[in-house]
């Protein structure tokens, strides 16, 4: 068998452009490839890849493999797996990096088991062990109550990386690289699932992942109403977005798309205001990258105060409206 060499980033597109997770993967993949003195490749799969392949080069890739097929417009495990398996075998990289996104979470385990190798999911840190040349992959475990570093001698070493954990390189459109259009015959008879309908639960306003300020409500807010009133008013004056812990999403108070944490969205705003949130490690996993966490909770012992920079102990019904009013006053100058 050919020797495994190089790093392959499994890229994703968002609205025809390179997804931000892919620029992050290329940033960290570039460093790993340089440490190994090997190449960094990027695989892009869609119905049409377009300009995103040039973007991948500008963000660090030496080679971009583009696989285009009408049947690849929407992610489906059984079609995407055909591409991933074929390219993994043909390119025999040392490591494959994917995002810990809805696609990465679904595709990476299938690929690892199909190839009979190892996978480390949701990694926060990657480095090369200089002697063994193996990837040391650090990820949170026990809901974020600990971290573990894993390695494997099986190639390729498949890894998914948490969004916002890595920094992209500065975009440099003068970087040189090669785009390699690659044909993969998709065998439609192997696609066993059928997507009957896609339902978007659009959340109005600024996207959580991009918001500079997030006001998150926990189970302690008591129901769906405060998300539309108390919390929204606070978020609005700070030009922020409203988020939630998992219980409000599970209870149907808010759409699941608003749920932040280990199994929800990962956010890293400048200001994260946690209202009636206990600060369970699985929730903190999704917001610990925030620059400033502010907690409002009636329980002085709540774990969220261990994560926060500033806190107020009190019932949110009393604290938040006064906070909002004072902010209005201050911001009005």
């Amino acid at each position: 068998m050919a020797e495994n060499k190089g790093i392959l980033v499994y890229g994703e597109l968002a609205g025809g452009k390179l997804a931000s997770i892919t620029t992050e993967l290329l940033g960290c993949g570039r460093k790993l490839a340089d440490d190994l003195k090997e190449d960094l490749s990027c695989l892009l799969v869609s119905d049409t890849v377009g300009e995103a392949s040039k973007e991948a080069i500008a963000f660090g890739a030496d080679r971009v493999y583009t696989v285009e097929d009408a049947s690849l417009k929407q992610y489906q495990a059984d079609s995407y797996m055909q591409v991933a398996e074929k390219l993994a075998k043909e390119l025999s990289p040392r490591a494959i990096l994917m995002g810990q996104t809805s696609i990465g979470r679904d595709l990476a385990p299938r690929l690892a088991f199909r190839l009979g190798v190892d996978l480390a999911t949701d990694c926060l840190e990657l480095s090369i062990d200089p002697e063994a040349k193996l990837l040391m992959r650090t990820r949170p475990v026990y809901g974020g109550n600990a971290q573990a570093t894993f390695s494997s001698e099986l190639m390729p070493q498949i890894t998914t990386v948490r969004t916002k954990a890595m920094s992209p390189m500065e975009r440099d459109d003068s970087r040189k690289g090669e785009v390699i259009p690659t044909k993969v015959e998709i065998d439609a008879s192997k696609i066993r699932t059928k997507i009957v309908e896609t339902i978007k639960e659009e959340v109005a306003g600024i996207k959580l992942e991009d918001a500079p300020v997030i006001v998150t409500g926990g189970r302690g807010v008591g129901g769906p109403e405060p998300f539309k009133t108390t919390l929204k008013e606070l978020a609005d004056i700070l030009h922020g977005a409203v988020g939630a812990t998992r219980p409000p999403a599970d209870n149907g108070w808010v759409p699941s798309a608003m749920h932040i944490g280990l199994t929800g969205k990962i956010v890293a705003p400048d200001i994260y205001i946690a209202v009636a949130v206990s600060g369970a490690s699985q929730h903190v996993a999704g917001c610990s990258g925030s620059k400033n966490i502010i907690a409002i909770n009636k329980d002085p012992e709540a774990n969220i105060f261990k994560e926060a920079k500033f806190g107020v102990v009190g019932k949110y019904e009393e604290v938040v409206p006064a906070f909002t009013n004072k902010l209005k006053e201050i911001l009005a100058g």
Binding site: G311, E318, V320
Partner: peptide, 16 residues
């Protein structure tokens, strides 16, 4: 964490 105090919860909120 710096806990922001006040004579009432409302005042603590404003002080925050």
């Amino acid at each position: 964490c710096e806990i922001i105090e006040g004579d009432s919860p409302e005042e603590a909120g404003a002080n925050l």
